[in-house]
Design a protein around this nucleic acid. Sequence first.
RNA 1: CGAGAAGUAGCACAGCUUGGUAGUGCACUAGUUUUGGGAACUAGGGGUCGCAGGUUCGAAUCCUGUCUUCUCGACCA
Length: 473
Amino acid sequence: MNNEKITPRDVDFAKWYTDIIRVADLVDYSSMKGSMIIRPYGYAIWESMVAELDREFKRLGHQNVQMPMFIPESLLQIEKDHVEGFAPEVAWVTHGGLNELEERVCVRPTSETLFCEHFKKIIKSYRDLPLLYNQWCTIVRWERTTRPFLRSREILWQEGHTMHATKEEAIKETMQMLELYEKFQKDFLALPVLVGKKTDKEKFAGAEETYTIEAMMYDGVALQNGTSHYFGQNFAKAFDIKFLDKNNELVTPYQTSWGCTTRMIGGLIMTHSDDLGLVLPPKIAPIKVALIPIKDTEEITLAVQELKSELEKEGITYIVDESDKSPGFKFANAEVKGYPIRIEIGPRDLQNNHITLVRRDTLEKITINKEDGIAKVKELLTTIQKNLYDRAKNRRDSMIYKLNTYEELKEMAKKQGGFAYVNWCGNISCEDKIKADLGLKSRCIPLKNESVDNVCICCGQKAVTKIYFGKQY
RNA sequence: CGAGAAGUAGCACAGCUUGGUAGUGCACUAGUUUUGGGAACUAGGGGUCGCAGGUUCGAAUCCUGUCUUCUCGACCA
């Protein structure tokens, strides 16, 4: 910890973001371009997410597996759209030891092809389905420009891959996982998200339908924070995966995949944090409470001990700052780290049998009887979680603009950010034009579509759907 | 990949115009006094000034090349 100042959020958002990451000591940069080292505190945040998601995946019947890191070129090339989509950002290994490889292999940018090869071997009968696999791993995409958490060359993520006997079941799985992500981001990360379908232009290479979770950052720029794909039989056909159904007929199964990454940490920061440092939703904060003794006396040490054992009894994680730093320094440090609640214990408190609780989200100080402390902590953790979500949602909602004319859209594109909610004819030409002229990309088509009786915002032809446009990270 | 800017201690930077012993703040170490919003004092440790070449008696400083990073564009699930 050092006492570097953070660039104010409204002055330079990009600098503010990297400052937060630096002062909270979440990552370090490796000697290789575009690779980040996730430091212990950053990793602890990821572990909180992993624990929650992994439990949910397993509850829904998924099993974890581990696939190889390398994909032979011939394997990657089996599905045509897939290889075309990923070609520009694949890293290749050409040598093994001192010898040139007969066939080069890539470092997985995603593992559909590996799973498919495996599925082809193990799926024989309808009794083998559904096959519900998930993998926690890192992937590599050779990005030209990188940004910590949001776009790095090595990505720590989770990828689910499932096979189903029927189309309905596969679609159900796709939607179920999408909803799981939405619920997780809402309930745990306190991120209000738009859920919807990607346009054909923006969908995953090789997918029939791509669904997305779109969060909006403090500056109004969108962040795709999770996806769920319905593949239909595209990969299964390309890989010649077949099984014998109940009628003893050889048929092709239906497939899904879904994933989310450490990008969610970036999303957390860009949504909740402020000029003093990190702000973490209590449910995801690795440490919920920071205990700060103001002075090093016997009386205070005793009171800290009491609080520690009470927190332990309740299973609330905490940290005690027993360093010989000044109180002000300890407060600032606790704020930088984003601990949801800080408890100050000093002589003045103890005189009256009090302790002081400080909320990280509002910085409100609450003086309370020592005995009531833990009950108040529990209550506050819930309150803070809710407040963070409400705050983010109000901000997000205030930046969704329902627009009808191209002029209005043009005006919006000039502004800082936000989502435009507009009518669209469904043609890629309009999507291309809006991107080329205004720099806005389609975010998603809402799942529950309102009836559309208007014209496309771009071409004026009959609109077929509502759609969100916005800038993206 | 195009345009611009920058690389000097862990971090942030000054020094460069006009070449002459490597500097400042924070962080770090030890000691003393402190402690309710980023403590004070004292004493320390830490650098081949991104890399390579050139000019020069002498280069962080001037010249050439090169690598890397950042911003903007392009690209991008």
